[in-house]
Nucleic acid binder design. Structure first.
Lengths: 214, 214
DNA sequence: CATTAACCATACGCCGGAGTATGGTGAACT
DNA sequence: AGTTCACCATACTCCGGCGTATGGTTAATG
């Protein structure tokens, strides 16, 4: 299970739990107290599994073996939880993008790695996929827009580095990003080869061949 | 407003309304009785506007200026309505696909027209877009699978006609269909050029150039 | 003209999730 | 030792959609 923003809780919430109670890792605990971050992570897990419409606070609480009473101490509403969870996810995704594409020298390899990444980082992608299904949701929409902008900027930059003129690079970036989105959609429909088969590899090769120059 | 399966109501429902009451177009009517087909069309309209999760029977009834009492005469449940509405939509879409692609001679033009179709037939595409957001829904999933299969078969056939070997044609079809799905997604995120601008046309040209040989 | 059948309205009970109120508990500090 | 505070449980109310029951209305028909 990924962690989504490991520590650095300087901005934890507005004025609530800090949960620094782990100065001494007590003996019989392992039933310590929950923090807002725990709820956010659980929310993202649930979204990944069951989609946005399944994000209800009571089922979530049941799933965590706890009651609503806890939730409404950490958050003022369901909306607030979603907001924080989305922020957490977006930050995580943004860092991820830089980490996995920032340190690859050749732009061609960067582009290829963009596709290969679909298989890795499952949770992040599952969340993303569900968020895409919830475009139109007022809280989700701006997130998707920013993420798309960021990713397409990366792609576009890579193409420019490969000597493509700006307009064409933009178009190509949009095109590739569309392919990526469409792939996620087909994946949700179980209409994509099993992701680690040779069929899949051949398809990826085909995509790379037709979409990435050189 | 499109009609989705105009007449031919031989299979109207199981044994219910036939609604042939319009033998004499009476004078003061225009407040005639509703049929199951009316509910199905209204359901599709609602899905197109607000998505699957908004398909609730009471709001739908309000929207139609009527009450639940009518609905439960025509249908046994919300699920039954959805089922019929999806059947209606799928048939309509299937006929549409053949109509708009079946009579174009050159396969290249057929492929190009596949993209241009996104702009036309708004309602159908809006419904489709919302259905995509509801992949995972047990009643929607099989529909999406069949539709994807049908469309990719068309695309694949066109590429083969252009002299492409079978495997490559399949891959290319999947690729193009992915682009199409991704485009719909970006459209829902309002991140696609305004659909009738030159920006849009240039993008389409770029797509056609890089994805369609010759 | 009375009856039947198609169609719709009204009124109900049920369920599940959102919030609220309030009280309980354990650890930490004084 | 007692108070405080962070955290959680319990028990409500409210709301909106689902499905049912039942009765009303209208048109066709014998």
């Amino acid at each position: 299970m990924l962690d989504f923003l490991p520590v650095s809780n300087q901005n934890e919430y507005i004025g609530y739990a800090v949960n620094n109670t782990k100065l001494k890792p007590l003996v019989k605990n392992e039933r310590t107290t929950l923090s807002a971050a725990d709820w956010e992570r659980a929310a993202l897990d649930l979204i990944a599994e069951a989609g946005m419409q399944a994000l209800a606070i009571e089922p979530l609480a049941r799933r965590m073996g706890i009651t609503k009473g806890s939730f409404y101490w950490h958050f003022s509403s369901r909306e607030a939880l979603l907001e924080q969870a989305l922020i957490r996810w977006e930050e995580h995704d943004s860092r991820n993008l830089n980490a996995s594409l920032g340190e690859i020298d050749h732009p061609r390899d960067r582009l290829i790695s963009f596709f290969r990444r679909v298989g890795k980082e499952k949770l992040t992608h599952e969340v993303f996929s569900e968020l895409c299904s919830a475009a139109g949701h007022p809280q989700v929409e701006p997130v998707l827009e920013r993420v798309a902008e960021r990713r397409m900027a990366h792609l576009s930059a890579a193409f420019e580095e490969m000597g493509m003129q700006v307009d064409k690079a933009r178009h190509q970036a949009r095109l590739i990003y569309s392919v990526y989105l469409g792939f996620l959609q087909l994946q949700k429909q179980q209409q994509t080869p099993s992701l680690s088969s040779e069929e899949f590899d051949k398809y990826i090769d085909h995509v790379v061949d037709t979409l990435i120059p050189n």
